[in-house]
Design a protein around this nucleic acid. Structure first.
Lengths: 208, 208
DNA sequence: TTATAATTTAATTGG
DNA sequence: CCAATTAAATTATT
């Protein structure tokens, strides 16, 4: 479980800056029926995800490795901001317009996630050459999340609007879906890879 | 595949200055069994890398994109020197890191590589959602090298000795591993980042 | 088995 | 140089 308190605080802080930032593009139905601000709240708990407890589903964890009691897992996103985060946040960057036109080569626009400890490094699955850690018993279990349909639908929707969400957008998505921001990032990476592979095949398949 | 003839010439030139320069620190076994000079030669081709043809592995490329015939890929490092290399030699400087600390950049020592054309692009921008994610047809293919174990072991060995090899050392490493000098530099950058991330809890992970 | 989450690593971008 | 992020490839889980 990569619960990162520091990152949660940063996410909370950056979410408080929402007003200065372009908001997520939401489905049209949202604008018709609902206030926009209500969609920046998490999914209502009235429809609890089947297997998801916190922001991340842990399929078969809470082994003996789980030591940290994970204080306030359900409310970490709403936790009070306690860090000024006065570095690395430049609200007005606008390298990207909502129509999907990128002004320069990079997709990495807007606010970037600061350097936080995530992915504890000692748990490499692969026997790297320099990792001379013979104790495979300490190896952490491979954790695989599974997102419910509500979450997936929302992610797919956002993917349509912007397959390269910056840190700010990922925080908003995280806040809504209750999926931690790093998992959101991984989801988009995998989604892009899948999209890329699909298009690559379709490019060459027409001459069959 | 960033084959840069001009850079190869520079590499060759600087390698010719080896006598005036400190030599790579090599594993102890080298001193016992082999002449030092023999290790400044490339890895013997008697053990050909499985998928590596030249200095760079191209997993599934050499498609229609590959246009340049890459003249003398295997011997570019030994090419005759033709450029005096009288520019870009600065010994010492201070540099600032985003964490707010000024570090004495004692790593950046010796000869530095002059600017080379890392050119490219001018690629057309994308307009539709499907084209935001670049595919191989639209964009120059992202080429990912993969170094074999012999190369990786040698690089790791050198990293242990000096995580900040200057241009001269990188040329030597390039000459031995048959990995182009820019790739060597990228490898060390990524390696330092990984090392930094692994023990970022320590006081100053910038000190190796 | 496929689908997909997670991990590793080379490469890129911008500062 | 560094931080962050990307693509590519692979591994692991369901």
């Amino acid at each position: 479980m990569d619960h990162d308190v520091e990152l949660d605080q940063i996410v909370s802080t950056i979410l408080s800056l929402e007003e200065d930032y372009p908001v997520l593009v939401l489905p049209q139905s949202v604008y018709e029926n609902t206030m926009l601000s209500s969609f920046l709240q998490p999914f209502p708990s009235s429809q609890p995800p089947e297997k998801i407890q916190g922001p991340l589903l842990c399929t078969e964890v809470e082994e003996q490795i789980q030591v940290v009691p994970s204080p306030g897992l359900e409310t970490t996103h709403e936790a009070e901001a306690s860090k000024p985060l006065d570095q690395g946040i430049l609200a007005e960057e606008m390298h990207h317009n909502p129509q999907g036109m990128f002004l320069n080569n990079t997709h990495s626009k807007g606010v970037k996630r600061p350097f936080t400890e995530e992915e504890e490094e000692g748990c490499s699955r692969y026997t790297s050459i320099d990792d001379i850690i013979p104790t495979s018993s300490l190896k952490k279990k491979y954790q695989r999340a599974q997102y419910n349909e509500e979450q997936t639908t929302f992610l797919l929707d956002q993917f349509q609007e912007d397959p390269y969400p910056d840190f700010m957008k990922r925080c908003q998505i995280s806040n809504i879906t209750r999926i931690s921001e790093p998992r959101v990032q991984v989801w988009f990476q995998n989604r892009r890879a899948r999209h890329r592979k699909k298009n690559q095949n379709s490019d060459n398949s027409y001459d069959f």
